[in-house]
């Protein structure tokens, strides 16, 4: 299907990205996919697609945020009580780890974007990108480990909803509601972190040999969008779960 598409029409009216057809595409150093006219169109499409995906993610978490908001309103005190059971220290560490990982991720994208198109530069940058991505993945893994400790502590304190759950006082049921939402939200978020860690590890392997450079860095950028999004979700989870009541 490739060559048949090469017959291009030129747009008489505008400088539409679709107009030049494959003529320009051939000039791109990196081949674009067959359905696109050129790499710029492909990049734009990928970005838009990723952001649409992130919009669905906002609403995916949004359902839980909706439940949280409703119950937080109805069971104001129980939720404050329950929130005090969580460790701010852990929460702060979690946030710090993820914020740092966002920086290393952003630096990886930066490196890829600013790499010149020469074999030497690409090889050199490839390693830097890979290491930055690995650092990001490692921080993500660190976050998961921290959360593991937190979950273990919750379990020991009988905060895990279900038969083992125990909370003194009459509002035990509502506190349990909080902890169900807490485990669902953080569990779902941790799952996203886990997917991100795997994704970044794969991207690190791909970038090691200098595959990505200024002319073609879209996959790194898209992975970065995902990672930053996961970070952003936590930025909201932290205050909503850990900081709703003054200590």
């Amino acid at each position: 299907m490739s060559d048949a598409t090469a017959i291009a029409a030129t747009d008489p009216a505008t400088g539409n990205a679709r107009a030049p057809g494959d003529a320009v595409a051939r000039a791109d150093a990196y081949p674009h996919e067959h359905q696109f006219d050129n790499l710029a169109q492909q990049t734009d499409a990928a970005r838009l697609g990723m952001w649409l995906f992130l919009a669905t993610e906002v609403l995916f978490f949004g359902g839980l945020f909706g439940a949280y908001t409703a119950y937080r309103y109805v069971y104001y005190h129980a939720f404050a009580e329950a929130s005090r059971e969580l460790s701010v220290l852990f929460g702060t560490l979690d946030t710090a780890v993820l914020l740092t990982s966002s920086l290393t991720m952003a630096l990886a994208v930066f490196t890829a974007q600013s790499t010149a198109d020469s074999p030497a530069a690409r090889r050199r940058s490839g390693r830097t990108i890979a290491l930055l991505l690995l650092a990001t993945a490692a921080l993500g893994a660190g976050f998961l480990v921290l959360h593991g400790f937190e979950y273990y502590e919750d379990y020991q304190e009988h905060h895990f909803p279900g038969r083992t759950f125990f909370f003194p006082g009459a509002e035990s049921g509502q506190v349990e509601l909080f902890f169900i939402i807490y485990f669902c939200l953080t569990g779902l978020h941790s799952l996203h972190v886990l997917i991100g860690v795997v994704l970044l590890a794969v991207m690190a392997a791909l970038s090691w040999k200098g595959r990505y450079y200024g002319g073609y860095h879209n996959p790194i950028e898209i992975s970065g969008l995902y990672w930053h999004f996961v970070d952003m979700v936590w930025v909201f989870l932290f205050p909503l779960l850990y900081l709703i009541a003054p200590r």
Partner: peptide
């Protein structure tokens, strides 16, 4: 009666 702590 059933959830006295809900509304103190």
């Amino acid at each position: 009666i059933v959830m006295p702590a809900k509304q103190i």
